[in-house]
Design a binder for these strands. Sequence first.
DNA 1: CCAATATCTGTAAACGTTTTCAGTCGCTGT
DNA 2: ACAGCGACTGAAAACGTTTACAGATATTGG
Lengths: 376, 376
Amino acid sequence: MSDGGPPTVVSIAERAGVSIASVSRVLNGVGARPETVRRVERAAAELGYVPNAVAQSLKGGRTKQLTFAMQDIGNPVYVAMVRQIQAVARAAGYRLLLHSTDAVIEDELAVVRSLGDRTSDGLILCPIRITPEHVEVLTAAAGPVVVIGSLPQGVPVDAVQADSVLGARLAVTHLVESGRRRIAFVNGPLDTVPGHNRRQGYLKALAEGGVVPDPALERATSFGLAAGREALHDLLDAGTAPDAVFCANDQLALGAAQAAHERGLRIPEEMAVVGMDDSDLARACWPPLSSVDLGSEERGRTAARMLLERLSDTPGSDDRQGPGPEPGGPRPGAARRVTTAPRLVVRASSAPSTPPFTSAFTSPSTSATTARGGAR
Amino acid sequence: MSDGGPPTVVSIAERAGVSIASVSRVLNGVGARPETVRRVERAAAELGYVPNAVAQSLKGGRTKQLTFAMQDIGNPVYVAMVRQIQAVARAAGYRLLLHSTDAVIEDELAVVRSLGDRTSDGLILCPIRITPEHVEVLTAAAGPVVVIGSLPQGVPVDAVQADSVLGARLAVTHLVESGRRRIAFVNGPLDTVPGHNRRQGYLKALAEGGVVPDPALERATSFGLAAGREALHDLLDAGTAPDAVFCANDQLALGAAQAAHERGLRIPEEMAVVGMDDSDLARACWPPLSSVDLGSEERGRTAARMLLERLSDTPGSDDRQGPGPEPGGPRPGAARRVTTAPRLVVRASSAPSTPPFTSAFTSPSTSATTARGGAR
DNA sequence: CCAATATCTGTAAACGTTTTCAGTCGCTGT
DNA sequence: ACAGCGACTGAAAACGTTTACAGATATTGG
């Protein structure tokens, strides 16, 4: 009778002349007399009842929400991940909470700690660096976490990572095999995990190809278009005369490509360009950019699935009596480490310089060549 | 004493030897005796207490969560919006819930209805079409909604929209003034609001410029890279001989640019290209793409702010006795309509054909020319 | 030293749901 | 007709927090 706010089980119970327990039962499909069902459903429909998810969460001990935290949604790699995570989550009836950390360490840690407030049932975290505090906080996490990135062996948290080393190796080997000898490397910060690993792969591929590495050909700045552009201009100004440039991600690569164009260098004839991540950008530009697909989508999908698995192992507010030392973590089963295989996608930007590329790439999406590397 | 699950106010109260009310008061900074404060804070710290946000939400009647629903996070326009929304929301202490609808009408409606479950305090919705059901559902929304897009006058919901008509007009006028006469138009679906409006602007600009529109120069397909590429190939195959192409978004434009390159046409000398949205893509490609900034970021930011305003007008579970007809909607103040001004950003892809563009655009980001249109 | 007051504290209710536990009812079989 | 049984129902507790209210202290003024 009272119009105090939105309809609740109480309003329905009053209107249908039954108890709130019966209302709940009918609404959840537990047995009830046909007559009762009819009356409750009628009342609910008339009132336009929608169950209060917050109350359900409180009672059930789970929110049906997942959190994804990365540094900045502007990066196409994270967009790809979000897409996959969202798809997997929603299929399982979970909502997705987005959190940008702007690569602030303190923020990343806060996200993990905030698992304790029970706002979401689990977390997918994409840290750019792993500090000792990360390890500490992750170990003490109040709920399941899956990290996308590299994690030391000891940390009891699932992780799915890219094989950057192999990925970079594939790219550089490809350049060496196409006859390039002065292969520049435009990298992001060296003290990040990707920055470090990609450099390892670069050096390894050079060694394998019998090319002497020239430190003057390396640049380490930040991940971004402007940085790539400046880096290549800088390399050219310094007279290092590269005939190819491998970039640690697609944004750097497009920046480098711009610089090359600005200098009047033809791609790929005078300068081959290869990027990493195989984001949408690589297909959208001209000439289409060769790039190493590090499996962003796959990593997102896998991470989401692993998280959901952990969640189904620890249903709601079930008091498990087993010898599990701590409640939230991934104890029922050791922490898993999954590595996705990189895949080199060769497009026009690094085609061997012999054939002219004008008409050969009428259909760039289908003519792409692929080299697959197995996960280690 | 009991280790049953995570610490609660009860655990703290036991350990500190006070009542749960005192615990809550101390934790919320309401007056208490120094001794009590000390003991509670000590106990809380020792137990690693984190308040349960779900319980707080239930009690307080607000979740401190906002929802943003759009069709697909893959579109750079939405990424820009998410970024801004997230920033505004977080600054106000709100979390952001992301929802991809895949442009399924039924899904969009479900999102609005799901406001009733009290999972989030408000909604920002980016519909691609507005159906009668939209109007109906939006009118009956259980909480504040801000729509990014065009909404009929009658609907009592705030909306912030782009001026697509003017935007398209700016772009096409620019092409006409640079001496282009056969200006093709590659559009998205005509039965969407953007599709319709951009065509109006295109036609208006042609009329104003004294150029007779040629229906053979128009193509309406879908919004996407491949569609743009095919459309331009198609136009060229049909012998329509355009000297410029205006595209309804940047992805279409990059597709068209690819097609032009594949045909060996030089941009902008033989074919000018202009896109819309001024996404990151426009700056990343070569030659840099002229584009109309429809203010995605601004719309996102504004929408978020408007939503927060509505929320602060309707604090928590305050029972307002006023003559407000319905509880959730934007009643305290009529629905607002905000239009953001489009801005044409001229880059190399549409530079007047007279001067060679090779060295003129050493610094594409700063050399861009700008034409601003006022909101109507 | 007592009364008046200001400050702090504890009990209990409330938010909206699910679920346990007893109870009620009607039915069947003999 | 009655015991027994099954299916259904309602009262009440629980999830973890905030908060109104009343009760209990300490503090001050006279």
